[in-house]
Amino acid sequence: MGVSREYLIQRTLLLFAVVLGVVIIVFIITRIIPAHPELLWAGPHATLKQIEEARKELMLDKPIYVQLYYYLINFFKGNWGVSWRTHRPVFDDIINYLPATLELVTVAFIIAIVVGIPLGVLAAIKRGSWIDAVIRVLSVTGASVPVFWLAMIAQLIFSSKLGWLPGFKRVDEIVVLETGFRKITGFILLDSLIERNWAVFIDALKHIILPSLVLSVYPMGLSARMTRALMIEVLNEQHFRASIAWGIPKRTALFKYALKNVIAPVIASLGLSFGYTLVGAYLVELIFNWPGLGYYTAMALLSYDYPAIIGSITFVAIFYTVINMIVDIIHAAIDPRVKL
């Protein structure tokens, strides 16, 4: 595997261009919307004079390009502004809310890969059988059901009606308080493992099951479908038939040789679908009251919190670009023909 300096430079430039583009677009859009964020900044009982001062403070009286100029300068210095709603630095807010989202998305992707890829392989091997038919129907359905609908249904059935699993929040606060759980990284599952706080770990696990399962449905369907299609292709390749003819047992030929040809492209397509999954995560977070970035962004949107809106959207863009860079690197690690 080789990652060349050209690749890193090229990707860094791309990242820079993406960020610049996203910031400008989102900035202009937020300023065009006729809202009065100075009212929010000044608070509910502000006088006219205070509101006027707030306008000045937020530089809303300046032309839009001046605002953009100052915003960009500060942005690249790491100062993403102060949230008009929480009155805390946007960057800190994002870092604060990020682990909840990352944890949710990571668990969802793990479920999607661990279940989706074997299902795809099974469908390919049993091509044309009823097993194949069932898996295909499920994967197409999974990739087309709206995630917010699924989230609400899952919550309604498994939490409200049956009461099997909690339907809100990441963890039960009482458990946290009783066991003296402290935050280390912000990933509750990880932190509770580090602290060997099993009560919190199990409680957090219970909380994450429903939302992560709901969120995993789309990437699971996608990876099952992709795996099936690619696997069928590989099974028809000369090299697969050669490996069988040369006497490599079918199981090894399938799960060691053929599967490796499938993994890289499936991961690549999951990477590309990451943006979509993140949108799904936002909706799931809202419905499950999951205190992550989606929740934060939604609150920002509802309260015209410009710096928070721009900050969180730009963050997602950066995130997306980095994820795809990682996908490239994984691809290069699997496929010796790919040089980055």
Partner: peptide, 21 residues
């Protein structure tokens, strides 16, 4: 017997090998 008593070489050598191994 396959690949032991009976073995084979194919027409297209480049396609006979899995590119990832």
């Amino acid at each position: 017997i396959r690949g032991k008593e009976l073995s084979i070489i194919f027409q297209d050598p480049a396609a006979s090998f899995n590119p990832l191994f």
